[in-house]
Simulated scan of single mutants.
Amino acid sequence: MLFRRRHSPTRLERMRVAVWPRHSWSRSTRYLGKRVLRLTATPHAIAIGFACGAFASCTPLIGFHFLTAFAVAYLMRGNMIAAALGTSIGNPITFPFIWAVTFKIGQWVLHGRTSDAGPQEVHQQFQHGLFEKSFDALWPMLKPMFIGAIPLGLVLATVSYFAVYKSVEVYQRRRKRTIEKKKRRLFPHPARAMEDDPHA
């Protein structure tokens, strides 16, 4: 196959790239932006899909963000590919802050107070409990995170929707103009061509 890799990546390499980009984060972010802009759907469907992915990434459902984003996007009639791309809001850099904010919001809603734990401390506690503790032992931490994920997810989804909608709308409008200009150059108007032809 053309442009196929000489050595196919191992399963471990695929898992690593899924959570950490092969190149720099800035390059990966630019690539992600281009992927979103070039989707073939209405700006609303793309923006809704991306917003659903952003919302799903705020939940503590590690390993199920794609499925959560697809389910919400299906209900909201959003673009599924955009929903998958929207889950990139949650990544190894942002997860410590997302989990700390959702945990503190949930604590405030449930108990009217928040802990003094920082983002890294909450991140380490959650990761440690996720792999080493039972669900019953982990639930006191998961419960406030689920509750806090709703307001934070709605804020991120709203911001993402308007940002993506405007970006896609502008991109599609410019692309349409470019295509129309190319068509006019390749296929000039027949009436104009007859006026320009002295022998017509």
Rank of each mutant, 00 (worst) to 15 (best):
G49S: 06
T114M: 15
A71W: 14
H65R: 11
A71D: 03
L12N: 08
R177C: 05
V168T: 08
T94I: 08
K34T: 10
Y31G: 11
W20A: 13
L61A: 05
F131P: 00
F3N: 14
G53N: 02
K182N: 04
G33C: 14
G118Y: 06
G118F: 00
P43R: 02
H23G: 08
L75F: 10
Q120H: 15
T59I: 05
P21K: 08
K182S: 05
S26D: 12
A100N: 11
H189P: 07
K181Y: 00
P9F: 05
Y171Q: 13
G112H: 12
Y161S: 07
A163M: 15
A73D: 10
S26T: 14
M141C: 01
S8N: 05
Y165Q: 04
Q120K: 05
R174C: 12
Q107S: 13
I81C: 11
K181L: 15
R38T: 08
R27Q: 14
V159H: 01
W139C: 08
V168C: 10
E180H: 09
T40H: 14
P144I: 10
R173S: 11
W20V: 12
T114N: 12
A163P: 02
F146I: 11
R175G: 06
L138P: 00
A82F: 04
S167P: 02
S8Q: 11
R175F: 08
Q120M: 14
Q172F: 13
F135H: 12
P140L: 12
S24N: 08
N91M: 10
L154C: 14
G78W: 00
A82Q: 03
A71Y: 09
A51N: 01
L61Y: 13
W99P: 01
T40W: 09
V168N: 03
F103E: 07
R177L: 07
V122D: 01
G148I: 01
C52H: 03
R175Y: 04
A18Y: 09
S26Q: 13
P144A: 04
C52M: 13
F64D: 08
A45P: 03
F55T: 04
H123S: 02
R11W: 12
K133I: 12
Q124S: 15
T10F: 07
E132K: 10
R4Y: 06
C58T: 02
M141K: 12
Q127L: 14
L67P: 02
